[in-house]
């Protein structure tokens, strides 16, 4: 997570290339480990992987400042990691351990983290958008320069809360960055089977919100657009909407047999995946070298191993504390 104040332009040098590549590989390997831990029944419940979509979190988060807020969905491991939620705390949360970032109460879908202003992990499709609007309303009323970044899938565009929130944000000129991660499917429902207007960013435009559609598989494009958007928001221009076109390589969750798409389609998208694509490009441009990638892989592997060990060694909250944190300072 970067904290510099004037981060509007992207200077793609070697260190930045390494940072972005590492961010994406870190998410990818972390989630692969999660899938493995899921089959071992260490992680239970719903587990939604971000595999294929990493460029978005990796590109958007650096455009935000430390004081900004993030609202995400149930597919938020990547967002939390790049935002700066410690991997140990994320992994422990996946296990449901007391050392988790939500003290184990949330699990995979409800990662929360006050130090990085990470407001969840919302597992109601569209449910995070009104909250983001409210966070931004508070900032506006408090005359703060903070921005609230709100991530959601294209499936949310069918929900009323999406439209209510876009309208409110535009009407009140609130500092919200809406980030639609359009991976073409809402569970098994292809976009064209659920929307009369499949151009999502056009919907935002109809609310008088500045909006763009961007290649979400290209981390450089993702970041450039995000910096443009954040700069416009901080300049007082009101909300901004970015539709990132992307693709989910894995199943919707661990319970999905993927009857709604064929393997060939997945293969084609994998070939233009965000990591291979950026890595190949950066190597060809001589920004990075194969041994850089080896080092990233090694660093990430040891961080993940440590996180799994941390989670494994974590503790279960005592059952006597069952009704803790229902209301402040007491039990109901």
């Amino acid at each position: 997570m970067t904290t510099e104040k004037t981060n509007t332009k992207l200077h793609l040098d070697r260190s930045l290339a390494l940072e972005r590549l590492k961010a994406m590989i870190r998410i990818r390997r972390f989630e692969e480990k999660c899938a493995e831990l899921y089959t071992q029944e260490k992680i239970r419940g719903f587990l939604h992987l971000y595999v294929g979509e990493e460029a978005i979190a990796a590109g958007v988060m650096p455009a935000l400042d430390a004081e900004d807020a993030v609202v995400a969905t149930y597919r938020e491991h990547g967002h939390a990691l790049v935002r700066g939620v410690p991997m140990n705390a994320v992994m422990a949360e996946m296990y449901g351990k007391a050392e988790g970032c939500s003290r184990g109460r949330g699990g995979s879908m409800h990662l929360f983290h006050e130090p990085t202003r990470f407001y969840g992990g919302n597992a109601i499709v569209g449910g995070g958008l009104p909250i983001a609007v409210g966070l931004a309303l508070a900032d506006k009323m408090l005359e703060s320069k903070r921005v609230t970044a709100c991530f959601f899938g294209e499936g949310a565009a069918a929900e009323g809360e999406f439209h209510e929130s876009l309208n409110l944000a535009a009407l009140w000129k609130l500092p919200v960055l809406f980030i639609c991660e359009n991976n073409l499917y809402a569970m098994g429902t292809a976009l064209a089977r659920s929307e009369s207007e499949t151009d999502i960013h056009a919907k935002a435009a109809s609310y008088q919100i500045q909006s763009e559609s961007v290649d979400g598989m290209n981390v450089v494009d993702v970041e450039s657009a995000a910096r443009r958007a954040v700069a416009a928001i901080r300049a007082g221009q009101g909300p901004y909407f970015l539709e990132y076109r992307t693709y989910r390589f894995r199943a919707h969750s661990m319970f999905d047999a993927q009857l709604y798409r064929d393997a060939q389609e997945i293969k084609e998208w994998e070939a233009k995946g965000p990591i291979v694509r950026f890595q190949d490009w950066a190597e060809a441009a001589n920004l990075i070298h194969p041994d850089d990638v080896e080092k990233i892989e090694a660093d990430v592997a040891s961080e993940i191993a440590a996180a799994a060990a941390f989670a494994e060694a974590g503790t279960w909250e005592p059952v006597a504390d069952l009704t803790r944190d229902v209301i402040t300072g007491g039990k109901q």
């Binding site: 407001y119 409210g134 966070l135 609230t148 209510e164 409110l168």
Partner: peptide, 12 residues
């Protein structure tokens, strides 16, 4: 929308 915005504003 506005009830959720109230939640967000309270958080903020």
């Amino acid at each position: 929308g506005f009830t959720g915005a109230g939640i967000g504003a309270a958080l903020g």
